[in-house]
Every structure is written in C-alpha cells, then in structure tokens.
C-alpha cells in the first residue's frame, strides 16, 4: 500500500505564512530540501500533521531570497543551512547561521 500524500504549490511569500498556520495546528516539520531546475530551484517543505504527510513546492529563481522559518520551527536551521551551502539558496534570518560552513566542504560550493 502506498502512502497518499499531498503536494501543493506555494509562492515564496507564502512559506512563512503556511509555516505559521501549520505550527498553530500542531504540525511537525519533517524536512526541507531543494532541487535544481532549469532556471532556478524547487524547494520542498514537508510537514506531518496528525500523521498526514503534507508537502509544499515553492519554485524560485536563481537570485531570489527567501525568509527563514527558524523562528517558527527551530529545527529548520539544519535544513536551511544545508540548502544554502550546497545549492546557494539565499535565506535571510536563519537563527543559527553557519555561513555556508555546515559541512565545511573543501571543493567549491554551491554546486551549479
């Protein structure tokens, strides 16, 4: 049996608004990841609310800057640092910002 999960599209401005409303409902942030696309990135935010798996896809351009959700979900700091180091996504207001030194990789990052 395969899980039926939700996958919805959000605009970059809605990231923090959605995070707020999910937090108020008692959701848990499951993961954030990014995927390189032809002209930018897809960010995937996954939450678990009452056992249901909810995913939100945000497409951004290469130069776009998004807002951190660490003020809403403190555990987002690892995912956001990872994205900014490996993919070069610009995120402002990360609570614990490693300044692209989370993994401290020797080769040049982000990967294009």
């Amino acid at each position: 049996m395969r899980e039926n999960y939700e996958l919805k599209i959000l605009s970059p401005e809605q990231i923090t608004i959605k995070a707020h409303s999910l937090r108020n409902k008692g959701a848990r942030l499951s993961q954030i990841c990014s995927v390189r696309t032809k002209d930018g990135y897809d960010l995937l935010y996954s939450y678990v609310l009452d056992g249901l798996f909810k995913n939100y896809k945000v497409s951004i351009s290469e130069t776009a800057e998004i807002e951190s959700i660490t003020a809403i979900f403190p555990n987002a700091f690892l995912y956001e640092n990872e994205m900014s180091e490996l993919f070069g996504i610009k995120i402002k207001y990360i609570a614990l910002d490693y300044k692209n030194k989370l993994y401290d990789i020797a080769v040049e990052t982000p990967f294009k």
Binding site: S30, Q31, C33, V35, R36, P74, N75, F77, L78
Partner: peptide, 13 residues
C-alpha cells in the same frame, strides 16, 4: 535528484 532525510538528522535539534 535523490534526497534522503535520515532520522538522526531530524533528531539533532
């Protein structure tokens, strides 16, 4: 893209 979010990564916070 292959992405694995492992349990320990989630448990560090």
């Amino acid at each position: 893209r292959a992405r694995v979010r492992t349990p320990t990564f989630a448990n560090i916070p």
